[in-house]
């Protein structure tokens, strides 16, 4: 009996360590693999030029990734600007002000939104957001647009990320004990002041990590964005024009145009860049969380 218990203890310990190591190693293997596949590209061009050059002419061997990097960042940033306030206020309302009944109704709604495949968001974007941008938004700002634009990409991406970020924020805010709110209220704070000081300030690390995960997810999102963003190399910075994010570049071209030399390596390099940028986003948010936790 005793031996069996000790044996099980050891075995389970082994499996835990094994699982953990697997999880740690996979990203490393992917990163190294992508790098090796992209390596031929570095033979004729410097890394700096690859990243910061804007000229994209694969047939002549010119691979400048800058438009794709900025395109990705731009769409992600726009979506974040839409998502962040909406999710924050919705999560506060749902956890602090609404009746328990509303939360019971909202939870399945949020879960359905989170579970929809992204191609559905893409179709919805084409049917609703693209015409909205070309027929209303662009004329409103005195310009014209086909609708397939950074703005459409940002909106669709925001709608996709809202349930994801919202769920995380709800989890964070639910951890605030009622006693803390009661303490703040009993000291004479209004409900909103209590929310500000206790629910928001007290949870900066949690809010930041919810946003960070949301951004990282938005940055790598492919299909839905690709369907509405226009997919044209462009660095104008005009949200009513098309852009070409990194994931769309890979998804659109991988396995094709094999006749062009280095094209495959270039796509691998795009994937590698995506990998590195997402890693950097995560590290940056880790750092922010660490800083706010210490205060």
């Amino acid at each position: 009996m005793q031996i069996r218990r000790i044996f099980l203890d050891k075995v389970n310990g082994f499996w835990m360590v094994f699982s953990m190591i697997t999880i740690l190693i996979i990203p490393f293997i992917i990163g190294v693999g992508l790098y090796l596949k992209a390596a031929p590209l570095f033979e004729n061009q410097s890394l700096l030029k690859l990243i910061f050059s804007s000229s994209w002419a694969p047939s002549t061997g010119e691979f400048g990734f800058w438009p794709f990097i900025t395109g990705s960042l731009y769409v992600t940033l726009l979506s974040f600007l839409f998502t962040a306030p909406v999710c924050l206020f919705a999560a506060i309302y749902l956890t602090q002000f609404s009746s328990p009944g509303l939360i019971r109704v909202m939870h399945p709604v949020i879960d359905v939104l989170a579970g929809l495949p992204s191609v559905i968001y893409g179709v919805w974007g084409i049917l609703v957001i693209v015409p909205f941008v070309s027929d209303y938004a662009a004329p409103f700002f005195g310009t014209s647009s086909s609708g397939y634009s950074v703005l459409s990409g940002g909106i669709v991406l925001a709608v996709m990320c809202i349930p994801y970020t919202l769920n995380m924020l709800i989890e964070v805010f639910n951890t605030v004990p009622n006693g803390l709110k009661e303490a703040s209220l009993s000291l004479g704070a209004t409900m909103w002041e209590s929310v500000k000081h206790v629910v928001i300030r007290g949870n900066y690390p949690g809010i930041i990590s919810a946003y960070g995960l949301g951004i990282a997810k938005a940055f790598g999102e492919t299909i839905a964005v690709m369907m509405v963003v226009g997919n044209m190399v462009n660095t104008s910075g005009n949200p009513f024009e098309a852009a070409y994010p990194l994931p769309a570049l890979i998804a659109n071209n991988y396995g094709e145009m094999l006749s062009i030399p280095m094209y495959n390596a270039a796509l691998m390099f795009a994937a590698f860049l995506l990998f590195i940028i997402i890693l950097m986003i995560n590290l940056f948010f880790r750092y922010l969380i660490h800083k706010t936790k210490r205060q």
Partner: peptide, 10 residues
């Protein structure tokens, strides 16, 4: 109000 458990503000 002094509650059963102390709840210092964060």
């Amino acid at each position: 109000l002094l509650s059963q458990r102390p709840y210092p503000l964060p």
